[in-house]
Design a protein around this nucleic acid. Sequence first.
RNA 1: GCCCGGAUGGUGAAAUCGGCAGACACAGCGGACUUAAAAUCCGCAGGGAGCAAUCCCAUGGGGGUUCAAGUCCCCCUCCGGGCACCA
Length: 860
Amino acid sequence: MSGKTASIDENSSAAELNQPQRYSPAEIEPKWQALWDADASLYAAEGHDSGKPKYYCLEMLPYPSGKLHMGHVRNYAIGDALARHMWMRGFNVLHPMGWDAFGLPAENAALKNGVPPREWTLSNIAAMRKQMQRMGYSYDWATEVTTCLPDYYRWNQWFFLKMFEKGLAYRKKSKVNWCPDCQTVLANEQVIGGRCWRHEDTVVEQRDLTQWFLRITKYADELLDGLEKLQGWPEKVRTMQRNWIGRSEGAHVDFAVVSSQGSDATPLKITVFTTRVDTIFGATSVQLAPEHAVSKAFALEDDALRVQIEELLEQQKKARETDALGAIEKHGVFTGRFAVNPFNGERVPIWVANYILADYGTGAIMSVPAHDERDFEFAQKYGLPVRRVIAPVVDTKSAAGSDANDLVLPYLAEKEAVLIDSGEWTGLGCVAAQEEMAAFAKAKGFGTPTVTYRLKDWGVSRQRYWGTPIPMVYCDKCSPGEPLPVAESELPILLPEQIDITQTNGSPLGRVPEFVNAKCPKCGGVARRETDTMDTFVDSSWYFYRYTDAKNSAAPFDSDKANYWFPIDQYIGGVEHAILHLIYSRFWTKVMRDLGLVKNDEPAERLFTQGMVIKDGAKMSKSKGNVVSPDLMIERYGADATRMYSLFAAPPDRDLEWQEEGVAGISRFLSKVYRLTMKFSSVARAKGVATGPKDQALLRRLHQTIAKITQDFDGRWHFNTSISSIMILVNEITANEAAMDAGEVSPAAVAEVFRGLILMLAPFAPFFAAEMWEQLGGEGVVFRTAWPVVDEELAREAEAEIPVQVNGKLVTVVKVPVGSDEATVKAAALADPKVIARIEGKMVVKVIVVPGKLVNLVVK
RNA sequence: GCCCGGAUGGUGAAAUCGGCAGACACAGCGGACUUAAAAUCCGCAGGGAGCAAUCCCAUGGGGGUUCAAGUCCCCCUCCGGGCACCA
């Protein structure tokens, strides 16, 4: 007891005696930050000749809103812990950061405050970079990428030209979201519940517009098949991408249109897409989308029909706008016309229906009510015939007739079914029939096997100002209607900076004559520049390659450098990017590979998606008023405690409930470590061999902790348990404090424990670790010091505590030497007085001994 | 409707391969130090019964497999996310 008060002895300096120092992040953190900010080499990646294995650790780049939020803090705390850990494990680490700096908020801010987008964006970047530095993230700022600067976006333009050359960029007319109030096109993300994000009361319309597209569908199969190889990606993300690509195998079949009068066949035909061509003998109608060319043709001939079709189209549009397509009530109208089923020559009625989508498949289907739920519902409503053409294998065997008719329709066969009433294909299995009938259609010239995708080509045109100008021009003289690519040497096509974007109608760039007027690359005459800009997802599709060679002015990057660093070893970000960004960037990588720029097929080997930061049960957001500012946390508890809490409160893949008391707890923990480290800092400088009588418990706990944390980094990343094991180590130190004061722990052991402790804290609390490392007299930079290595011998417990159960209920715990064999453990269990009392007078039926785990006695 | 997550004390969570449920924290309670408070340190703590030894109940609910289930199997409820007439 007296040891505690007398503990400040000859090891402590006078200064410590007079004014015991307390943990003060407000002093420690700025001190180290200043040193780190001034040293560009600190986090610089080395070249391929470093002699070390490379490790590319990447976090998703943020949009520079101007403020770091807790989601960022958590995302980057994970990446930073990993990067620092890998440095300590001897890797050559690339850990970059950049800015996804184009996009509408900048234009919005300009409208609201009159600040030019560029100025607004760059000042936001400066503010956020400062916050990141204050957080102590280990980014190599020499490789910083800012997508809104010409030295970056010129390569977007360069890629666009390459894609145009290869036929991967093309123009076509397509539907876009149009806000009649803004007089401009909106991206899908800006349509909320069918309404404009800026005008809550304005319903967004669909308009036809000529747009630029990138041919991502060319890679649809490769993007799909590649998912199998991405074992380091979360299954959830792979499933989402699989669904998004939506590959479906089927067939196109042509139905010739006949007039309602009968015999005079017209050249009109309807091509339907079906995945179940084997059910075609059950087709009792053909259904068209309201916008199908044939629907339109019929509408022209029949005013009454036209009105009805327009109504169907209205219903569909409305449903689409309110995101309720799935809930639309099925309506349809008979056109009075018929089509011929090419397989049996039968005439079936042609209908137009509101549930048929013009932009999937061919916009026309054959309706088989007996074997499709939707067709069945429609047929029931309009009294169309239902004709069964497939049956389960069992019920054909049990002979024809009644059992078969008991079957509930629609019958949706999987594989075990055969065709009935299907002409020459009757009796064939469904799977075989699908193949044979598609092949038959092809041979006869009225169809073909087809693969359809849900994935569509990527529309990249945006009628906005703050984005990459599309490097194309139009010359009425030498290529009317056909766009011409600008010469590579003309790049970058600069975004004009003095621009009035307060007007909202049309493309802002179209109102800048200096921009629009261009020289035709072919004839040298007057030409018009394309005034659309690129989707910002273009920027983020390849930014991580630019990090490997950020200053290159002759190419997007040097292939050797990219090939050294790629693929990304670990990509970390939010699951909200599971589809768009992560599929576009996979596509871009494949295009670059085919251009010979890189060798890898996929950008990232492993992907980690962290959970959201929650407060009071809801996602932090301005509208909910539950935002916790990182700045405030830093002010109160410091950056180290803030980051460490974000790793401690939950496993990184789970949602995290922000509780300020928890941050305070981490801060208290760091204070405790600070006090102990300062107190023993002189002792802990000792070198030599550990020989003290009380060394063992401490060293054992140290090595158990090393083993645990090393394992966490290599495996599950459950840093919450890593940090808790460090706390256990510190508790062990506290429990041994008196022994340490009394000199019962050798200085060498004290040194080993404290050095190990601080090294293990370095990935989680870098400022703190740097300060403590200095206090311990550690040499060099703490997070470049080798990660401690486990000594299995020291980590091992001398005795094992083996729980003993009787009939599965815990009775006692016996101590046996570690590694005891079954007989020893059993003997120890049976010798225990509590066990003896419990089994007295009963028969031991069975003894289960799991060495090192437990003993269970089954008694009667 | 379909596909993924998830549900464990007052709270965040732990239990990684079927083997002592609640580690580590937060909040709480009791104590020490202090004139006092803060800070710090020590201790208690799933629920219920009992003076106690001890017993009973407990991982969203119900069944099952097993010597043994938070963990595996079947059914159900609730919460979160994604997709949704994709032919």
